[in-house]
Nucleic acid binder design. Structure first.
Lengths: 239, 239
DNA sequence: CGGTTGCTTGATTCGCGTCAAATGCGGTGG
DNA sequence: CCACCGCATTTGACGCGAATCAAGCAACCG
């Protein structure tokens, strides 16, 4: 069930069979979540954390005037609110962008893991550090990249992250979200996203249509994005 | 030496005397760092992590064209590149914004802590989760807040964080950085920061001068910022 | 003291937002 | 089977907030 989460960890370090078993046993149950369902609301007390099995979910915050900023998009295998394990109350909300399937992991079991399995604990900790690294890269996008650079970078990142869990292929990846969702990730309006997608298309770099991103010129896209995948830590190392 | 780091942890959970001792023993040595010195460069192999004792440091990335985005400002007591312990190579650089003093903590000792002290491990993990929460709040600023909201929010955040380590007072806090540094935190230009500071001043909310932020109307500042301190997790709870 | 650095302000430009309308399309019920 | 609806996409016209360019000033300092 949590195969993709294991894939994600194994892309960063070795995971023993015993550790794999511990993780599999930590899962309480799975649930199906429809599009737009909010599964965690900012400020709620949490006793469970959520692992994404299938679909696409996001974490977001919004302002009084209704403007929304998405902080991270989550692909299958992401332990998306592992942060809640120690924060107890999340600063943001979590919702599904497409019909999704999640696994629930009780905090009690995570606490046991921290007591009994230091290496596995470090790996779980690591995944939250990678989330923080993704946040930092998005900060650079929102603070300094132009609209075309932001979209290009976003596409490169999602391509790499889908690759880790063996989804997508060199030519592209599935991305069943609206241009409005994309705008909320990138700190732009949907109108401007639409124009910039046209620009990317006409430059022969990438096209976004029919719920899929088609990468036409990866080298060019990376150059426009100034994309360097190091921050995703896709490298096996003892941690 | 690391008193402020202990204060920071004790603001979030209880820390036993034994745990405090373990932490104190983990420190190798202290070092003085002059303004503008880069102490960690993105991509370097790391064997030590840095705890800030005095001064002000930041983590940042820059683009090819020389534009820089600061991802987080660090106050005394912050374990500022604890992230490097598991990432091994950082995605960003770290530099001093004022003359600072740091303590160096070998990764070996951190690894021992994860093996022998689960609760202390969770507390260290927690501090990195708070960093991520700060990143998310900055994402909201850069993506959706106007320039005045961004500065107001930044001032509120720094005020709260200085408060935790018993620096500053209700009326303000020390902030010995340039308007250019501020602009690099906020995703703006120094010219626009200057104009917006004037706006804040003329609105009677806050003034930034002589290396200090003076808060004139905290309620008003919070309202403009839409500041809610929950994300800083300044609350004692079992973690 | 001349040079450097940071702050301040004005004039102008430009990237992105706003507002509005048209087009396309999958789903659905009569 | 088709008329209709709701939703997403696309495009155009226009406006605004922040960037850019430029100049003057104040404080510091070797």
């Amino acid at each position: 069930m949590i195969d993709k989460a294991i894939l994600k960890l194994r892309a960063r370090d070795t995971v023993s069979d015993a550790e794999e078993r511990v993780l599999r046993d930590a899962v309480l149950r799975a649930e199906d979540i429809p599009t737009d369902k909010v599964v965690v609301r900012a400020g709620e007390e949490l006793k469970l954390s959520i692992l994404l099995l299938e679909g696409l979910m996001c974490r977001y915050k919004d302002l009084r005037n209704g403007e929304r900023q998405i902080m991270e998009l989550h692909v299958p295998g992401d332990f998306l609110d592992l942060h809640g394990f120690l924060l107890k109350r999340l600063d943001h909300s979590v919702m599904a962008l497409v019909p999704s399937r999640i696994a629930l992991v009780p905090h009690d079991r995570l606490k046991e893991i921290t007591a009994d399995h230091p290496h596995l604990t470090r790996l779980l900790w690591l995944t939250t550090l990678i989330d923080a690294a993704i946040h930092r890269e998005w900060l650079l996008s929102l603070g300094r990249r132009t609209s075309i650079g932001r979209i290009a970078h976003f596409f490169c990142e999602m391509h790499a992250r889908f690759g880790v869990v063996e989804m997508g292929d060199p030519a592209g990846f599935p991305l069943k979200i609206t241009q409005t969702d994309l705008a909320e990730c990138l700190g732009l309006t949907s109108v401007h996203v639409n124009r910039t997608l046209k620009e990317l298309r006409e430059a022969g770099l990438a096209v976004f249509r029919e719920a899929r991103v088609e990468i036409l010129d990866f080298a060019g896209l990376k150059r426009v994005a100034e994309f360097d995948p190091d921050y995703l830590q896709i490298e096996q190392r003892p941690r």
